[in-house]
Design a protein around this nucleic acid. Structure first.
Lengths: 339, 339
DNA sequence: GTGAAAGCGCTAACAA
DNA sequence: TTGTTAGCGCTTTCAC
């Protein structure tokens, strides 16, 4: 049978309470007894039962993480940052994805209701925002990783879409490009919208508004990049640059540009987003906006951990300030200066 | 305060035991009382506390998953399959990565000792195999996702490295390629070794052994693909094909081949592995071995869930048979027949 | 400084 | 069919 605190207590000749005190460092304990208890703990290889501890203490030491999916590279990166940070703070990490749709969310909500974890981290809440806000209102500490802060009461870590998109725009403007195509993400997605808007705003401010017909929705696939370019060509849209919402689609763009005889960077400059994978390996190598994805995840996890460790109200308010994320433009050949 | 089973019992005019029975479907309950209890449960929005249930039942309903990292695309795919399947079987999923090295594993082991979950899924155990075997021996249900089954007692799901590598070899042989370069993974990694071996074995069997100097270690980065090719050229190694351990490195290979004036597919045929991302978007598009990664993850999770639901001994033995994985070769231009 | 006792919220015998 | 009684293994007052 499992070694329990009772065994330790018996063997050490003390009460369970004392063993608990020693292990949790609460209350004063005689140096000698403490040493004895610790010795017995080691001898018996005693480890407190997570189940019993969580029932008695009223918290689990576990944090829930809700992500749309793991298969998008940038999300995997963020998750890794979260995992590392959680490990650091000693929290367990329960993973939930919204992969299977509404049903997934319902099951997730069940775990919330069952108090299966102490705090929640949500990556790209999107449609689940209201439900999540409700959970937060019900007392569950929540931290969001998102660019749309619908609820000003929730701590939120931005994902760098706006500054990144602006950087991309400024870079293209500096190169003298004036008529960009924009290949976006799925309609209705926050991150897609914020990226596209920041980009077109920057161009508009510079005096070069981007016409709607030059903006194509996408789905983050390579194919959507290909389709956007060929559509633009077919429609006779005049363009000298392409801003693409992720690196995968950007590959499709590069491929199709070459196919239609307008290869980057000479005819068309191309900027991608994320730089999380193969951007340096495309032909030509892709200029891309790099986001500190792991840091974003780690930062969010840190904030949540702080909240769980009972941050004071003032502190919580401070944490609620959106955390600034610094993006970096990695310039490669796909935007080499026109000759 | 939280609604507990006591509140429900009181309001429904029954004992806690009866409420428990209704909720767990154990023992006979009068239809009328059952209806009444259910109504009250709904009225009060009662959800059993996961903490209390797990302490009382002696199990958590949670499964631990230990992965090397989330940032390698193929692992993210497998994890998504695992997550979907776990969700399906109603299990929670505690995620652990070995990202931070020994320390990570120690913390993970702590959770195991604390009985924080009922079963364990390990992706690419590698160096942790002995420790994991010990956990299994101590009674923790374990399922591995790996190509090296060091412990015949543990159920294991293969990841398709051997059949995939053989397919790649046969494809190149059929194209008349005889002198392949092999760009592998980090030395000492199981998956890398099994892939390389299966490939070289196939060539050797066909009468064309691959000399050691034509085999380069890599680290799954694009750079290692570039380096391998340029090294081979510098060393004056004669080759007409390259088998690369993942798609990212393959991109590097394609890039460097073009750079040194021996572009694929004419001079050199290139086959990648995984087809999990941008393989269709390289220049030229990459022929690659596709593995059913999500299925692999889902299958492993299914087996573990079955074990947790108390599979009979005979059944367990059956499950211990390595599950066969079918890989598929996706042929693209990087191995177009030489003209 | 330490022990006894009362929970934490639920399940599972055992009676009735 | 249902209630009573013990726990599950730990933490935490409250006395001593």
């Amino acid at each position: 049978m499992r070694v329990t605190i009772a065994h330790v207590a018996l063997r050490a000749g003390v009460s369970k309470a004392t063993v608990s005190r020693v292990l949790n460092g609460k209350g004063e304990t005689d140096v000698a007894t403490e040493a004895r208890v610790r010795r017995v703990v080691k001898e018996l290889g005693y480890v407190p039962s997570a189940r019993a501890v969580s029932l008695a203490k009223g918290r689990t030491g576990v944090v829930g993480v809700l992500a749309p999916t793991l298969t998008r590279p940038w999300i995997a990166q963020v998750m890794q940052g979260v995992a590392d940070s959680m490990e650091h703070s000693g929290h367990g990490l329960m993973l939930f994805t919204r992969g299977l749709g509404d049903d997934s969310f319902r099951r997730f909500a069940g775990h919330v209701d069952a108090n299966a974890f102490d705090g929640l981290l949500v990556i790209e809440p999107e449609a689940t925002t209201p439900a999540v806000a409700k959970m937060a209102a019900a007392g569950l500490p929540v931290v969001l990783i998102s660019d749309r802060d619908t609820d000003p009461n929730l701590p939120i870590v931005a994902t760098g879409n706006q500054p990144g998109a602006r950087q991309a725009a400024q870079h293209l403007l500096a190169l003298g490009r004036r008529r960009p195509l924009v290949v976006g993400g799925p309609e209705g997605y926050d991150c897609a919208a914020s990226r596209a808007t920041a980009f077109t705003d920057a161009f508009a401010e510079a005096g070069f508004p981007v016409p709607p017909q030059a903006q194509f929705p996408g789905d983050y696939s390579g194919e959507s990049g290909r389709v956007a370019v060929s559509s633009a060509v077919t429609l006779g849209i005049d363009f000298d640059a392409v801003f693409v919402h992720n690196d995968l689609s950007a590959s499709g763009v590069l491929q199709m540009l070459a196919h239609v005889g307008r290869p980057a960077p000479h005819d068309v400059a191309v900027v991608g987003f994320d730089d999380a994978g193969h951007a340096a390996l495309t032909a030509p190598p892709l200029t891309a906006v790099r986001r500190p994805l792991r840091d974003i995840g780690a930062e969010a996890a840190r904030i949540l951990a702080a909240a769980l460790n009972g941050a004071a109200a003032s502190e919580a308010a401070e944490l609620a300030t959106p955390v600034a994320i610094t993006t970096e433009l990695v310039v490669r050949e796909s935007t080499a200066a026109p000759t």
